[in-house]
Amino acid sequence: MTSREAFLAQVRYALRQTRGKGHAPAAEDPPRIPNTLPAWQLEAEQVRRRLLAQREDLLLRLERMAGLMNWKVVRAGTPQGAAEAVAQIAQQVGARSAVRTAHPVFARAPVEDALRSAGIPCILLAYDAHDPQESRLRLRQSAIQAHLGITGVDYMVAETATAILLARRGVSRLASLTPPRHIALVEPEQVVETLADALTLHKAQFLEGGDPGGYLSLISAPSRTGDIEQTIVVGVHGPQEVYLVAVW
C-alpha cells in the first residue's frame, strides 16, 4: 500500500504537467453557498417557506409521480386511517408477519394494534440494550423472514417519488429491504420538491449536529432489473411491491 503522502504527491506531480497546480483552491470556484451553519440555515429556511407555500400542489404532484414510479398509493386521510390502511394491505397480500421501524409516525399511527386485530404479528426492529448482540441477531432473522416491512420516511421527494430514510437507533436498514413488500407512511411535512431540497434541509441539520448520518437509503421504486433481454422484472433482491400510505 502506498502512503497517503506518496499517492497525493504523484497526483500533484501529474497536475503540474497541466495548467492546474493542484493544492487547495485559492478561490471558491465554482460559486456556492458558503459552508457555514448560518448560511445553510438561511437556505433551509427559504426552502421550507417555498415548500409550505406550495404544499397542496406538491402533495398532488407526489401522488402522481409515485404512481408513475410504480408505488401503490393509498391516501389515508388520518394517522388512524393510515394504520387501518396498513392492516388492509397486509390482509390483501396475505402477509403473516411484519416488521416495523421506530419512526415517529408510529406514535401517531397505531399500526401494531391494527395489525393485531387482523391477526398479524408485528415486530419492532429495535435491539434490547441489555443484550445488544443477541437481540440484533434475532431481529435480523425477523427482518429476513418477514412478509412485510413498514417504515416512516425522513424526506419524500415529489419530483422523483423518492423516500429518504436515515438509518439510526430504531431504524433498521433492513426493514425496507429484505421483506418482499415495503409500506412507507408519509406525512405532509416530509414532502419536499426536489432531491436538492432534501439535501439542503439535511445539510443544515448536520452542519449543526456534526454527523451527516452513517447510512441514507433513497428508495424510488420497487427493486427491479432489466438484465435479461432488457425485460423488466421486479423484486429481484429488494421488495417487489412498494406502498406509499399518504397521511393526508
Binding site: E159, T162, L195, D211, P212, G214, Y215, L216, S223
Partner: peptide, 12 residues
C-alpha cells in the same frame, strides 16, 4: 428519473 435505490454511506 432516478434509479430504484441510491445509498449514501458515511463510515461504518
Amino acid at each position: 428519473r432516478i434509479s430504484s435505490y441510491v445509498t449514501f454511506v458515511t463510515g461504518p
